[in-house]
Design a protein around this nucleic acid. Sequence first.
DNA 1: CGGCGATTGTGAATCGGATTACAATCGCCT
DNA 2: AGGCGATTGTAATCCGATTCACAATCGCCG
Lengths: 217, 217
Amino acid sequence: MAREKAERSRVIPEVPEVVVMRLPLYLRTLVQLSQRGVEVVSSQQLGQQLQMTPAQIRKDLSYFGRFGRQGRGYSVKYLLEELRQILGLEREWDVGLVGVGRLGRAIISYAGMAPEGFHIVAAFDADPRQVGQTVGGITVQSMDHLQESIKATDTRIAIVAVPAAHAQEVIDRLVECDVRAILNYAPIPALVPPPVKLRNIDPVLALQSMTYYLRSL
Amino acid sequence: MAREKAERSRVIPEVPEVVVMRLPLYLRTLVQLSQRGVEVVSSQQLGQQLQMTPAQIRKDLSYFGRFGRQGRGYSVKYLLEELRQILGLEREWDVGLVGVGRLGRAIISYAGMAPEGFHIVAAFDADPRQVGQTVGGITVQSMDHLQESIKATDTRIAIVAVPAAHAQEVIDRLVECDVRAILNYAPIPALVPPPVKLRNIDPVLALQSMTYYLRSL
DNA sequence: CGGCGATTGTGAATCGGATTACAATCGCCT
DNA sequence: AGGCGATTGTAATCCGATTCACAATCGCCG
């Protein structure tokens, strides 16, 4: 049978979420290599950098296509572009922030987001004293404008930095206005309906799971 | 055969790390229940709260002992105490912080750590302008004093909030002075030798893995 | 231009964590 | 006191992710 020519528009099967979560790691490493002027990299080398087996990297990538050349490795520039494409990072993303307390302010001021294409374009707070203030070039809006503003700007990503007591309620409201990805800083086991994605940032949980190994000290 | 009386000093087998990472979640939920005055809880109810199967919770707990009563469930107060014990949270922990930039300052000011028994007792920064300043009641020390100070106070937990370029170097130095748990905020795939534990906080990575599912938007 | 070392892509084998399923036990109700 | 619904603890099973292992292919060198 002649070789099929299905190259483009390859059907991507259900990719395990763990795999998706590793892709940004690969991407970041490739960016660094690219900056250092490296043009080609093997799964072996990538694995060394990231402390994982070459096989895992190859298998992960194989979910999305064939990006390497046998006997040679991967073109850093090409794989990097492909990963950006796959992850939807070839475009810029608007992000809404809810909660402009100390944590929220720190997040707004954090310089590491924009270079990666994430732009906080709106901020909300329940405290009337915060509303109207300008933080990092953004005017804090009332929670009353949440739905309205998020929908009007078609924002699909939000960061939640409100007290635990209000976090689930805020998340529910975000889901209602079609936010599809939420980065939650509140220390609660938040719940979102299926198409919506959620990631939690919880330093206390991280510390508490490490002390298990320090019990003897 | 008569029932064995090995109750205490049970040998805990190698517990999977995923299990250890879930324990703080259980603990947190139990604390909430306790505050609400709930005295007994079933794995069923816990599972509902945490969005996981009752069997998983029971299995996780079974690594450490038998804490429930058949037909009844778990005593909230008792299980809570046991989990604290297991996780080494019945005591307070001193924490060192490296990097007192915007992020580091936000971490120091964060009020959620102390109530859980984690106290930032020392802060370090490479920038001479920061050294000597007082942040949240803590005097920032020079990096030259890192080893000395950490060892003198027998600090075993550290938080790294320095630029990516210096993070690995800082981590290496922390490991050298017997720090055994590191919470890393720098966006690098940090490396630590075996007995040392590491957890990464990386909001950008989290965002990048979510955009995969937003590609179509 | 042919052979060789390197490296990919992937089916098959393996591993480990999650789920199932159930005997053992509990407290309560009658 | 005895039966019943509820719930645990865990052995057995299932399932998905990781690793293995190798054929296919590449570029290079002589």
